[in-house]
């Protein structure tokens, strides 16, 4: 009931804090980067050994490992793709480092000499854009919200990636895409391509549909045999995006992580897990559980095949529980004040 207290707005302190924080962020980023460059090197040649696979004529994918970032894999845990049209190449995500981007471009060159006409970053996560340096700047494009997020959070992501992946990241810099994409269907590089602007995994998730082959590059809206990750997720919106995806006339699906599929298995898996996750967290908050108690929740056996499920579940609790808890506690206060 009672309104919290305090006080005259004569609250002591704090005006210019924001600016200061940004300034510190910049400085600390520099320091962190300096300090992070020393870990031992596991793979001497720093070759990701990227092997593009042609799923259908002109529709290619480079499948990453179902792992978390590490010195051993150098960040090669993501699926990237490219579409080869009659006049040019569309690249879908650029991987986790400058080296990845360069090696991806080399792999594309083994397939086609056609020019790169468009490079999209499907969303703001670092394994999807840190290879941008390797590609012509004018071809880099993303949804407006993604561009803004890469601009504001990219440096921080990059610093963390140096720590997690070690020397694989050498000389990797954030290149913010300049071209803002809009949804729509058009011919690009001589190919019939549709862009869909969805969201839920992050604030904006771009889906690329290659109508010529019926291939849907769904990026991180789909995970396959790999537990979905949620640091920027809005689960309700993500589930709605899955409904949209299900309505697409697709012959094959390329998830952001895990094996491509010709059926709805990745979509059903992602939906099932996210539904369970949201429900578990909501129920925990409503029943008065503490976050550390929620960590102990048994994972249903049907998710045992999802790589990293125990780790990702706990991370998701950290991401999602505070909002669920806040909703329950604020509703209780509102009720008590009536």
């Amino acid at each position: 009931m009672s309104r919290s207290a305090s006080s005259a707005p004569a609250l002591h302190r704090r005006p210019a804090v924001r600016a200061l924080r940004s300034l510190l962020a910049g400085l600390l980023f520099a320091l962190c980067t300096l300090l992070a460059i020393s870990p031992p090197v596991h793979a001497e040649d720093f070759d990701y050994r990227l092997q593009p696979r042609e799923l259908a004529p002109g529709a290619w994918v480079v499948v990453g490992l179902k792992e978390d970032f590490s010195f051993a894999n150098g960040g090669n845990i993501v699926n990237t793709g490219f579409i080869v049209g009659s006049e040019g190449v569309i690249v879908i995500d650029t991987g986790s480092s400058k080296r990845y981007g360069e090696q991806m471009l080399a792999a594309i060159r083994r397939v086609t000499p056609l020019p790169i006409v468009l490079v999209v970053n499907t969303h703001q996560h670092p394994d999807h854009f840190l290879g941008n340096q390797a590609f012509p700047r004018a071809t880099l494009a993303a949804l407006p919200e993604t561009i803004a997020a890469i601009r504001s959070e990219g440096e921080g992501f990059n610093a963390n990636m140096y720590r997690l992946n070690g020397d694989w990241m050498r000389d990797t810099e954030v290149v913010v895409p300049e071209r803002a994409l809009a949804a729509g269907r058009q011919r690009i590089g001589g190919r019939d391509v549709e862009l869909r602007a969805l969201g839920g995994h992050t604030v904006a998730d771009l889906v690329v549909i290659d109508h010529d082959s019926g291939t849907v590059y769904a990026a991180d809206l789909l995970f396959h045999d790999r537990t979905p990750t949620t640091p920027h997720a809005d689960i309700a919106r993500w589930l709605a995006a899955l409904d949209t995806l299900e309505g697409l006339p697709a012959r094959r699906w390329v998830p952001g992580h895990g094996e491509p599929a010709t059926d709805l298995a990745p979509l059903r898996q992602t939906r099932d897990y996210l539904g369970w996750l949201a429900q578990t967290i909501r129920a925990g908050a409503e029943s008065g559980q503490d976050m550390t108690e929620l960590f102990q929740t048994p994972i249903p056996p049907r998710f045992a095949g999802l790589a990293l499920v125990n780790e990702e579940f706990r991370r998701s609790v950290v991401h999602l529980f505070p909002a669920a808890e806040r909703a329950v506690l604020e509703a209780a206060r509102a009720k008590a004040s009536r």
Partner: peptide, 30 residues
Amino acid sequence: ATGGGCTLPSVGSGSPEWQERLNEVNGKLW
């Protein structure tokens, strides 16, 4: 704390809201 240390947190307290709500208690008993 491996994830720690180097990125900018989005701190809600940069908004004016916290001043009006400072010390507001949202609680519930079970």
